[in-house]
Design a protein around this nucleic acid. Sequence first.
DNA 1: CGAATAGTGTCTGTAAGACACTATTTT
DNA 2: AAAATAGTGTCTTACAGACACTATTCG
Lengths: 269, 269
Amino acid sequence: MQTEAEFLRSYDPSGFPPFAVTVDLAVFTIRAGLLAVLLVQRLEHPYQGYWALPGGFVRRDESAEAAARRELAEETGAGTFASGSTAVSGSTAVSGSTAGGHLEQLRTYSDPGRDPRMRVVSIAHVALAPGLPEPVAGSDAAAARWWPVADLGLSMPAGSEAVPLAFDHALILADALERVRSKLEYTTLATRFVAEPFTIADLRRVYATVWGDAPDLANFRRKVLGTPGFVIEESRSPQAPGPAGGRPPLLYRRGDAAFLNPPITRSRR
Amino acid sequence: MQTEAEFLRSYDPSGFPPFAVTVDLAVFTIRAGLLAVLLVQRLEHPYQGYWALPGGFVRRDESAEAAARRELAEETGAGTFASGSTAVSGSTAVSGSTAGGHLEQLRTYSDPGRDPRMRVVSIAHVALAPGLPEPVAGSDAAAARWWPVADLGLSMPAGSEAVPLAFDHALILADALERVRSKLEYTTLATRFVAEPFTIADLRRVYATVWGDAPDLANFRRKVLGTPGFVIEESRSPQAPGPAGGRPPLLYRRGDAAFLNPPITRSRR
DNA sequence: CGAATAGTGTCTGTAAGACACTATTTT
DNA sequence: AAAATAGTGTCTTACAGACACTATTCG
């Protein structure tokens, strides 16, 4: 009888098909009133010149989540998504967020042939960032920019997109979009799109932008303010209104509630 | 300037850290009124003698989904989950099901050190099967059996489970359970747990078993029958009642609706 | 003042929760 | 008949949808 330690000493780990494992990131933000996703332009073959989701190899000693955080910091400028702290680790559950950011695993894409170079599985992640500043300096000198998702012409017949993406990234992006859209329904994720402090109108604009359709103002306020922990009031003292006047809004910060029950629903299908 | 074809001919795919990629399956069924999960007992180190989720390596030429279908057929007896047909491929969406079965990707587990032998990422899947027959013959002569999830003592402090599972499978199983429990709320997935034809009471017992709490009968009927495409009536002619008598129930089959809107909610938290 | 933005009040309809009732079978 | 199971009716309440109204700022 062999002990586990003995077994491991003599184990030959070459009897399995080797895969490359990458993370790809669909990072969303709202810029100029439009939902935008961060894309990088490929400098090298394959898909040279195409736009692609940022991503990279998972290193031998890190989890996919750690790799995703690392890439995110590289692409969006470190700090916004400080690593560590909020453990995503376990559950499908509520995922990790730091300083306004949000990162969660989306799903893993593994079709053979999705990368013509070699066998790669990609663990795709979705990240949200509150309105980040101007175009982001690419990590490896690659061009990087925020693309309004409406300009990409997804939801066209596959292959005929206005901006064709590399690999299967159009599929990943479509899945990521649907994840974000549906999560606004039953989570407080919308608060991750706005910088603190924010107004109820700011929050409502997130829904309007992501869904393409603004929820009724009065009902939205009732829901947000009536859900304990969705937002917390920041200052009773009204702030400066917009350039065109208007009653000064109250300001809020993110509460610690994660789920909305019952959810806010997109217009009944 | 190099063409993509030239690039690929000269590409050396050895510059990435090699990973093993596996699929693990959390296969649920309802047996004897209890929610049960299929586990196999490990014959080899590491975790020799421990119970584990069935799974295996993804082959070089197959997707994770194909690997999961293959394993599922091996473990539960081919046929129930015929491969091919219903494309899961793309979306996070509604996943594939065949002949009553259901298979969907859960999430990918990638912590370094989750397997002491080597660097492995596991793409975990959830499968549902309508009441399968007696203990299943293991594929590789390993013992395999249905374990009532209540007997496993999950939801204990980690590490003190009644039946300790190999690797990080207790975590995967907990995530899988939560996925199934929550999907009963907003999808028609419950119909995948029962063999056709079934009664409304059968369907209600699925909810009772998975949630540990039966929804009110009258309200449940109203919801199920009032949701177009949840179930379709099979025969108006009443069938034989149970051994203790009772009014004979109407019989139904699965409809083609996938989502419940609004959802059936577990007792308000 | 009017325009613009923020915020309130209130009516209506849908559907869930609770629970009492009827229907059809076996023993 | 009683027990067991299936199925119906109905009252109440929560809450979303719609929309008219008030409040506070700007020019």
